[in-house]
């Protein structure tokens, strides 16, 4: 009796062919994007999205063409932070034109599709019962479409803002094996470093994808008036974590409440407060990324 391998094709559906075609569309779209940089952590609440938006603004400020893919389907914030949320996307000849945020940054996010800014993401299905079995697949397909069906055009950088979870980078690498590099973000807390350590191992040992380095966000609070630096977390040792995992340490970004205020008002902190320690650190990080990919 014939076995699976003895039968050529699948009876008429050509599932493999369809999946291959989907992957081909991704590659075709990314052909005009020079560098794809993922911003990840594994841990939530470490400032990935703020960092992504400010890095995009810093690059755009240097005259680069920049896009952001908000890969956080269930916690999307990039459209709001860049001021792209109210934009009306339009159908183009070969896909959907992305919304445009501050500094001309092109944005694709699930938020741009929802009828209300505060709507949660719910997928239509014959039944919502046992939705956990397929929800991840729908989200993966959505990200694939965001990459392949958005008219990104010519970009110097496409930043991907990944949601928390150590599984998110592998999913993205499956879609985009040509990822230029990953910036891994942590805060100095021991718990954050514990989780982020797993993400670094996922990136380096399992995926062997290029890691630009580890950045220490919210490292300290710098007094606006006197410039004195106060630690926000008791632990630290982020540079040591980078050393342990043999990835570059990209430095500290001090906490500045104006980063959050700028995001709330859809403005770019990094270009509006260039002389602050946090903005200087962000600009330096943008430079390190530029050096890495060039």
């Amino acid at each position: 009796m014939k076995t699976y391998k003895d039968i050529v094709g699948d009876g008429g559906s050509d599932m493999v062919g369809q999946i291959t075609e989907q992957a081909g569309r991704v590659q075709q779209r990314m052909a005009t994007v020079k560098h794809i940089v993922a911003i990840m952590s594994g841990k939530g609440g470490v400032g990935k999205s703020s960092l992504t938006v400010n890095l995009a603004a810093a690059m755009a400020d240097r005259g680069m063409q920049v896009g952001i893919l908000d890969a956080d389907i269930n916690g999307a914030s990039v459209a709001r932070m860049t001021g792209a949320g109210g934009h009306q996307m339009a159908g183009g000849e070969t896909g959907i034109k992305p919304a445009t945020g501050h500094h001309g940054v092109k944005v694709m996010s699930i938020d741009l599709w929802l009828d209300e800014a505060g709507s949660p993401v719910v997928w239509d299905a014959p039944t919502q019962k046992d939705a956990f079995t397929w929800r991840g697949m729908v989200e993966a397909a959505t990200l694939r479409e965001f990459i392949s069906d958005t008219e990104w055009g010519e970009l110097d950088y496409l930043f991907i803002d990944l949601p928390p979870g150590t599984d998110k980078l592998p999913n993205m690498v499956d879609l985009l094996p040509q990822l230029s590099g990953t910036v891994i973000v942590t805060i100095p807390s021991a718990v954050s470093q514990f989780v982020v350590g797993k993400s670094i191992r996922m990136a380096t040992e399992l995926l062997q994808t290029p890691v630009i380095g580890l950045v220490e966000n919210m490292s300290a609070y710098v007094c606006e008036k006197c410039g004195k630096e106060e630690a926000l977390f008791p632990s630290g040792h982020v540079a040591k974590l980078a050393e342990t995992h043999q990835v570059p340490y990209l430095g500290k970004i001090p906490f500045d409440p104006r980063i959050a205020m700028a995001a709330d008002n859809a403005r770019a902190f990094v270009t509006e407060h260039k002389e602050t320690p946090a903005a200087k650190a962000l600009l330096n990080l943008a430079e390190r990324i530029g050096d890495f990919v060039s």
């Binding site: 159908g91 070969t94 896909g95 959907i96 699930i110 599709w113 929802l114 009828d115 209300e116 709507s119 993401v121 719910v122 997928w123 239509d124 299905a125 729908v138 397909a141 959505t142 479409e145 965001f146 069906d149």
Partner: peptide, 11 residues
């Protein structure tokens, strides 16, 4: 383009 999102996303 975006068939999955258009056909599956509610609201």
């Amino acid at each position: 383009p975006m068939a999955m999102v258009k056909n599956t996303l509610r609201d």
